[in-house]
């Protein structure tokens, strides 16, 4: 069985949500992850808060936040176990981030430490 990272991409990280809306998203995310864990397919995961975010440029210039010219940002990622990329995609389809128009979930296979990848 392989491991896949499901990376949650927000089209516009500067959008401000109401506390009530955030509460709903939080529950939906916890239920989504709980559902994957209930299939014994959850490996690990973390949210990436927007506070205290920095971007470091190639010339050593540090800017605040991931939002400059580009508004798209990563909200978090989880790692799951799956037999195939198709199965991992099925997990991704349940991600509540996708309720937001323009948001995406990127599915990426985790490289194995087997000398091949």
């Amino acid at each position: 069985m392989d491991e896949y990272a499901l990376i949650m991409r927000h089209e516009d990280g500067t959008k401000v949500a109401s506390p009530e809306q955030m509460q709903i998203w939080m529950k939906q995310t916890m239920d989504w992850i709980g559902g994957i864990a209930a299939q014994n397919k959850f490996v690990s995961g973390t949210g990436l808060p927007f506070a205290d975010a920095k971007v470091v440029g190639h010339n050593g210039i540090v800017t605040d936040g991931p939002f400059g010219e580009i508004k798209e940002t990563i909200g978090g990622f989880i790692t799951v176990k799956a037999d195939s990329v198709e199965e991992a995609v099925e997990f991704a389809k349940g991600c509540p981030v996708l309720a937001g128009e323009g948001n995406t979930v990127e599915v990426r296979k985790i490289a194995k430490r087997d000398g091949v990848h």
């Binding site: 529950k27 916890m30 239920d31 992850i33 709980g34 864990a37 209930a38």
Partner: peptide, 28 residues
């Protein structure tokens, strides 16, 4: 039931067991 559901969501992330998965679904 919302509290029980979220506790099972967290428990399953730490340690999976069939009985926890079934109880989580009942709480759901």
């Amino acid at each position: 039931w919302e509290s029980i559901l979220q506790l099972y969501n967290s428990l399953l992330q730490i340690e999976y067991s069939p009985i926890a998965a079934l109880n989580r679904t009942y709480a759901l």
